[in-house]
Amino acid sequence: MNIFRLAGDMTHLASVLVLLLKIHTIKSCAGVSLKTQELYAIVFTTRYLDIFTDFISLYNTFMKLIFLGSSYSIVWYIRRHKIVRRSYDKNQDTFRHVFLILPCIVLALLINEKLTFKEVLWAFSLYLEAVAILPQLVLLQRTKNIDNLTGQYVFLLGVYRALYIVNWIYRYFTETHFVHWITWISGLVQTLLYADFFYYYFQSWKTNQKLQLPA
């Protein structure tokens, strides 16, 4: 494993911890999209089914369990926790899952590394992860005041994606036969979705003003 991949995983972990900590300590999920969190729970469930069939490393299995556990806990908090769920504004978080999930199923059936159950699910999880942030970005755009933690959560997720791209470039040059078009293209699309957010995030940071996305 190279340093970019490790740094990417750590930023991913940090993003999830920031979000869980925010929800757990201030007992509020204001500004957090339940739709995005549910999509991530689906992404991790479909991608990490291989913990039952393949063993890669202890690190790998451990991280998979963390991402599965944290995504389900966040969904549980927003849906079931008696205080947290009151802060969830479902009238703002209106993105429909089905418009993202259905096209990803079709795409995964058409474009995959092998037409097997596991490979189709793998491809599906990559396509869905690429677009899963959309409900969150739409919600941020609608929210007048984005709190620091929600902003940091999205920022860390974007950094994690960018580091994964550097990791793929590194692996392409250092490993033989490391060519994964499906992973690369969906990963690139995913990272590009953060470009706009990054622009405004740095603007607000430079001018020391509260982050606000234009409608």
């Binding site: 393949d54 490393s57 790998n60 991280m63 994964y164 994964h180 992973t183």
Partner: peptide, 10 residues
């Protein structure tokens, strides 16, 4: 090397 498996990333 197990790390060269195509699905070794998270």
């Amino acid at each position: 090397d197990k790390d060269k498996h195509s699905h070794d990333e998270l």
